[in-house]
Amino acid sequence: MTIDTASLTSRGTFWQRSHQFDTLRLTSDGRRLYAMDNQAGTLVIMDTSSGASLGEVKLRYAPAILRIDPA
């Protein structure tokens, strides 16, 4: 769910129905959201403008996303 922090209204909702996320991090430009699902061992990458999934990376337990360097 994207929330406008000034108005506290919803800008939109994206569903990832097969995941439960533990850790989230945005790229510095806010265009991509990285979300870690430790139960599934999957790092999910989403386009924040459309909510579309850009892909997944299989990972073992990762409690923190420390940094993202854009390509």
Binding site: K58, L59, A64, D69
Partner: peptide, 24 residues
């Protein structure tokens, strides 16, 4: 334990380098 990262092949459209703390 998964076969994570074993086979480099395109899995996403993102080209970032992401740094994670891993306890796996």
């Amino acid at each position: 334990a998964s076969s994570a990262n074993a086979t480099p092949r395109p899995t996403s459209a993102a080209r970032d380098v992401v740094y994670v703390r891993s306890n796996g």
